[in-house]
Amino acid sequence: MANTSTTTISWDGGSSPMNASYGKLMMWFFLLSDAFTFSALLITYGLVRSAHPAFDGLINEFTFSQTYWPVPEKVFEAVPFLHGWELPLVFVGIMTFILIMSSVTMVLAVEAGHRMDRAAVEKWMLWTIVGGLTFLGCQAWEWSHFIHGTDAGGLLKDGTKFFGANLSLNQYGPPDFAAFFFFITGFHGFHVFSGVLLNFLVYYNTVTGVYERRGHYEMVEKVGLYWHFVDLVWVFVFTFFYLV
């Protein structure tokens, strides 16, 4: 695309404002609007959480209760194949690692695209897709565990025992906690899912030589922006949902 707006500023078109192509610019503004959506979700989580009492006892004596907001590291401490072990936040840490790594492979694909190196773009796009699918698999496991609950379960407000969580009842604490878990990680997971689809599309077009014939790999760059944004959102979800 014509990225040479610096010399020809005219009213005749053909020059790109901000030295970025139309597609890239629109991707940026779409991501900005998406950032507003995610901020709204996370900030509302903060509002609802601060409207509930916090657990103020010793951390080792924490138990699930409907009367206060749970401590996240006590909720998310399960790891696949290690049933019964208390490993707080370890699995989330692994998921964070996977997403950061797939961000690096994506940026390497973009870099290879600038050099018109088709083989390298194919290689790095494939790694990015693998990373995205692995992350989705991890999230599926985490959701499944969260929905089915722990061995001990927890007491509801009326005193009955309940295992796991759904949108109206949950063993870990106030129902809002589970609802926010489903909405925030679900909305992010859906972004990862659509990111994987877009990545696959770009991979397919690279393999069939569409971009090589077009003369540039800008699509890799645009989808790359989206993929990095998904990683960026996860950084915030990780902090405000799991750590704080």
Binding site: A112, H114, R115, D117, R118, G209, E212
Partner: peptide, 11 residues
């Protein structure tokens, strides 16, 4: 199979 001779810039 390469349709055109694309010049790959070294990394």
């Amino acid at each position: 199979h390469q349709e055109t001779t694309v010049k790959v810039i070294p990394p």
